[in-house]
């Protein structure tokens, strides 16, 4: 197993390299640059800035320099937020985004699984239809609708929650963003769990468990659920990578100083270093969580062996 993890981490290096390379050159194919904004800078200032950041060098040299810096853990300075390095921006924002994302993911997994199980046990009955209705609504209503509704109802009307802001991480400030992030994921988890549980409950070994007179709890939780969680595990990996790296919509609507905004803002501003930083962070998260998913597979299912 350890050997397997090591092997996977080793193969992550070429993967990352390919991602970085692709992102670097794709970014440069896009027209414009960090310093041609709507309010044009004078040519001298622009030339100065470009010289300072080495943007006048041939592209291959810039690429080699970037890789070299990256290998030393240096993501470079942000072009548009010149007072900060990319590393500083992530050090400040990533914990916030990750905290919200992780809470939302846990909430979605717990609630979604529960709803899914309830639906599966009441297949084609009222309970099932209720869950399907909730799940359909959850996955069809976009976050940019859910978020303002939460602000409106809980913030403006009932005064239960602040409308926005981080408030130095006060619990009440987190509830709105977490709910908004969790709802669509919960809907997906509920649907996945329902389908997976229905299939699992039909399997032959569940029939055996019933024929042996085992309790409903044991039949459902010990035997059916364990077999049914694998699709949820596969879903949770990429979902975790996406959630933990922040959401532009939620962070913008709730004025959260996370990193979700950077990807869009930086891409629009051609803030090359910040875009590259975001790509690397998301790539690392994705690779890492996929590895965790594969390890979880082996934990849940003894037939999965990696050595």
């Amino acid at each position: 197993m350890l050997l397997y993890v090591l092997r996977r981490l080793l193969t992550a290096i070429p993967t990352l390299f390919v991602i970085v390379t692709l992102a670097f050159f794709l970014m440069r194919v896009a027209p414009g640059g960090p310093f041609n904004q709507e309010r044009g800078l004078s040519p001298e200032i622009r030339a100065n800035l470009e010289a300072q950041f080495g943007l006048g060098d041939p592209l291959w040299l810039q690429y080699v320099n970037y890789l070299n810096n990256l290998l030393h853990g240096n993501f470079g300075p942000s072009y548009n937020l010149p007072d900060f390095t990319v590393t500083e921006l992530f050090a400040a924002g990533l914990p916030i985004s990750a905290q919200l994302g992780a809470s939302a993911l846990i909430l979605a997994l717990l609630l979604g699984s529960m709803l899914g199980i309830i639906a599966a046990l009441n297949q084609n009955k009222v309970g099932d239809y209720t869950v399907i209705a909730i799940a359909t609504a959850g996955s069809t209503i976009p976050t940019f609708v859910i978020a303002p509704v939460i602000q409106l109802v809980f913030g403006l009307t009932w005064h239960l929650l602040p409308i926005g802001g981080w408030g130095d991480g006060a619990l009440l400030n987190k509830i709105g963003p977490i709910l908004t992030l969790a709802l669509p994921q919960m809907a997906i988890v509920a649907r996945l769990m329902r389908g997976s549980m229905i299939e699992s409950l039909r399997s032959h070994h569940i029939r055996t468990a019933r024929a042996m007179g085992l309790s409903d709890w044991s039949v459902v939780v010990k035997h059916a659920l364990r077999g049914a969680v694998l699709p949820i595990v596969s879903f949770a990996g990429p979902a975790a990578a996406a959630l933990l790296t922040g959401s532009v919509i939620v962070e913008t609507i709730f004025s959260i100083p996370g990193v979700g905004r950077y990807f869009v803002e930086a891409a629009l501003n051609r803030d090359y270093t910040l875009v590259m930083g975001t790509v690397v962070v998301i790539a690392i998260f994705t690779i890492l969580f996929n590895l965790i998913v594969d390890i979880m597979y082996a934990v849940v299912d003894p037939r999965v062996r990696y050595d």
Binding site: H205, T208, H223, R226, G227, R303
Partner: peptide, 12 residues
């Protein structure tokens, strides 16, 4: 049962 391959829980 008829299906010896699937009648036992594969995970325990």
């Amino acid at each position: 049962f008829q299906e010896p391959m699937t009648s036992l829980d594969p995970l325990y």
